[in-house]
């Protein structure tokens, strides 16, 4: 039987016993034939993979990640601005719809962590780090978040995660902030001990009082950063 036909039938699982032994002999002795079988088997995997919905989703996540980077194109800037407004709008909407207590407490207690790692000096030529912190200090949190994220790719400084989390809290995206803060608090960095307080803030933003209390109790117990404020806040929460 002609080789192409033999491989076709093999892939479709319709080889007869006689054809099967012919296939096996060829596969063991003819290198070119074996290569062709491997090629077509790979192709079958590839074609099947294209139909995998999970793979499709991961592909989309990647394009979204790449599209979100700051670029010089104006329309992209507009998109970023629009998304900031959308996020702010959502944050306001959620805050209006929450029971007064949690969001009031959050407003009273939350203040983003100041830039202590990279003091900005006016007039110097700005590097990527300065630009990121400048965005952070002037309240352009989405831009700051994107820039810190890019910096994290090139520099091995985990405190960028901490500032990213702060930016996310400002943007009302506590769930994402929590992931980052947990990741950061597992590292041993100079600001690690501050992560607990902001974790508590994130839970407060989500109106998850139980988790917020757990985090605050840890702070008080360990006498960690902001423990006196934590004590005060605990009293108000209980």
């Amino acid at each position: 039987m002609d080789h192409t036909m033999l491989i076709e039938k093999y892939l479709q699982g319709s080889l007869s016993a006689k054809e099967r032994s012919e296939f096996d002999i060829l596969f063991g002795s003819d290198e070119e034939f074996a290569r062709e079988v491997a090629f077509q088997e790979n192709l079958r995997e590839v074609v099947n993979a294209e139909k995998d919905p999970l793979r499709k989703m991961v592909g989309e996540l990647e394009s979204e990640f790449q599209e979100n980077r700051p670029t010089s194109g104006t329309w992209k800037k507009l998109l970023v601005a629009a998304s900031i407004f959308a996020v702010l709008g959502l944050a306001i909407f959620y805050n209006l719809n929450r029971p007064v207590s949690s969001s009031d407490l959050y407003e009273n207690y939350f203040e983003n962590y100041p830039n202590v790692v990279n003091p900005l000096e006016r007039g110097n030529t700005a590097n990527a780090k300065d630009t990121a912190f400048e965005a952070y200090e002037t309240g352009r949190y989405q831009e700051a978040y994107d820039r810190f994220r890019d910096l994290l790719e090139t520099e091995d400084q985990t405190y960028y995660q901490f500032y990213m989390a702060n930016a996310l809290l400002e943007l009302g995206r506590a769930e994402e902030a929590i992931l980052l803060l947990k990741e950061y608090s597992a590292s041993e960095d100079k600001l690690t001990d501050r992560a607990g307080w902001y974790l508590a803030m994130a839970y407060l933003q989500l109106d998850d009082k139980k988790q917020a209390i757990t985090e605050l109790e840890k702070i008080v117990e360990q006498g960690a950063y902001n423990s006196s404020e934590a004590e005060q806040l605990l009293a108000e929460l209980r």
Binding site: L61, R149, E153, L179, L180
Partner: peptide
């Protein structure tokens, strides 16, 4: 899932 994807992507 996206939050986790983005979290580790840069790192």
């Amino acid at each position: 899932i996206k939050a986790i994807y983005d979290l580790f992507r840069g790192q």
